[in-house]
Nucleic acid binder design. Structure first.
Lengths: 199, 199, 199, 199
DNA sequence: AATGAATGAGACTTCATTCAT
DNA sequence: TATGAATGAAGTCTCATTCAT
């Protein structure tokens, strides 16, 4: 097993344990046990607990940012971009629910009081990327201009987070059909509103 | 200073410290220092760190549930109810931003992996109360029926949470005008959608 | 309630709690609660936990020594003296099993490692008083002289202790008949031996 | 130094400190210092103070039970069995007086109020094993049948305990001669009685 | 006399991290 | 690479005792 493989095993194990117990309650020994190796070896690959956690989070952000940046630049229309964002997250959830669980419980909110600005910056970057898509939609005349783009962003990102929370809480499995239905529901309300249409 | 006053002082101090450092990083000694008393006295009033935290969280839920239940029963129309929910939270934020900070960072999501079902139950109750309001709106013909009420709930609660996160992150002060603008923005998009209206 | 009454109430309560939980696990608050008063008041009457405990133990030793000294001086024959010792202890057990429980669990052995020589001295005094009775018995030709009096004392006191342990362990009630049977049994074996008599 | 050696060192040290200060007054730090290691390491080998203490006590009971069971099954006559019991204990005292000190001060009596039945069960087992030997002696016609076997057991075990107490109190060293004399003394009185033989 | 709030020394224990092997 | 023994800072919590009222 070469270096990269080992690191992957450790990250997978850490992912599992962090998501199950939370950062604070996770012991390095738990991770080592899950990875079936000594904890000395974990330290051989990762400087300390925080760095290991950061590596996991970094993985997530890298993928997420990549997707958002790709979408931002793409010539999909705004609705399709928003659909893709949701699809991306649901796909990750399907493959690695732990990743999403950690995102929701430890990253998306937990950073707030972290002394350093790590989390803050990440969140702002995410928010900013998403807001750019909204702004773009407004400029293209697809999204309303009478509502500030940051409000649109709150609504959009927030609803995704809450949905993820509920899924994690219920330990839900997502099949294709549910993914589709959810995506459409969120997008539909987001774009057309919750109010009943009168003729 | 009588018993109740002391407890209040401790809760205020704990609120401050928990919100600044997070539950895990908060030391009982920090709280005692903030409250300007010995830590022994904190233990005189609260059994342990968890119980103290729970007392704070309980305070919040009690008020929040109370508001939601009151609104649920009231004969306001659905839009007004939703507006009131946002107003309630913003009012609490104005008075006790720490309370909201703890809610967002520790309660709203952080419970996910808590062994006991404490957090889960609370969240489900909140979700359920909010969903009832949505269902009621659907039955009254105010909200769309082609979207399941739980999706509407995700969107609504989620956007509030995200907004709160952003406020906390930026340590924002909310004046009357901002409160109004935000409330209207959220409600407007939620009800009428983000999409630009074509004639 | 005058001073003496209060002290009695405290001692009774302490007796109960010490015997139920042991010295180390007994809280001053437990004693106060049992006595139905504030613990501040307990401190008004007894300097501290140790002094309170000592008062209880002192009570016991005073009575026990008094009995032994009285018997030592009395003109009962040796057998009757030994019977009286056992009777005395059983009588106390009947009236205040807690007293005996503390004696057996905390005093009779537990003193061994106490820094001060308090316990040591008490035990030596007890042993000495009892040994005097044995020596007297030997001089009167009632007890064997080929066995050192201290061995006789070990046997006698030890068997009483063990019996008390077993009673406490089983939370036994002693009626008149059981007292009589036990006393006779112990004395009989002590004096005549456990061996079957061959003709 | 391998795992087993370390554990032995810790147990030896704990034995020394527990016997000197008693369970309640012993600090884990004291044990670590005595063992010349950090207290973290003590916890590496033993879960906590109680488990460490239990390990020590278990060692004692295992040896003691083993001896009693062996004797019970052996074809020695009753007198020889009783002699062997005393010899066994004296031998342990000679080698590890701390072990015996802990037995007498913390185990033999101290268990009485322990919430769990650990101590109770152990004591009952000991008592039962010893009583079996007595019963056997009665059936073989060696011991008197007019005295219940449990009284004989009280007498026998109790005298041993008291003797041990006195030795510990006086910090006595036992040489071969003293062992012999004591053993014979106890057995002699136990079997033939303390009363002077009249011709 | 009486209360119980208040103090703080000190105990146990955890666990991230280091390091000899 | 790999192990897990070893360390000790740091945290939670207990509870005897004091003291203002």
């Amino acid at each position: 097993m070469d270096r990269t493989d080992r690191e992957k095993v450790i990250i997978e194990s850490a992912l599992k344990v962090f998501s199950a117990k939370g950062y604070a309650s996770t012991r390095m020994a738990d991770i080592a046990k899950e990875a079936d190796m000594s904890y000395g070896l974990v330290y051989h690959y990762f400087e300390n607990k925080e760095k290991l956690f950061d590596a996991i989070v970094e993985d997530w952000w890298t993928g997420y940012y990549g997707e958002l940046e790709m979408l931002k630049k793409s010539d999909l229309n705004t609705e399709e971009k928003l659909v893709q964002i949701i699809r991306y997250i649901l796909k990750v959830y399907e493959q690695k629910p732990s990743q999403i669980s950690i995102y929701v419980t430890e990253v998306s909110r937990g950073f707030v009081y972290h002394a350093d600005s790590k989390g803050k910056d990440k969140f702002n970057k995410l928010f900013s990327l998403c807001q750019d898509i909204m702004l773009d939609g407004q400029q293209q005349g697809i999204l309303r201009k009478d509502i500030r783009a940051n409000y649109l962003t709150y609504l959009f990102l927030g609803s995704i987070d809450t949905f993820l929370s509920v899924m994690i809480l219920g330990n839900e499995k997502l099949n294709e059909a549910r993914q589709k239905r959810f995506t459409e529901g969120i997008i539909n309300v987001f774009l057309h509103g919750a109010m009943a249409k009168t003729v």
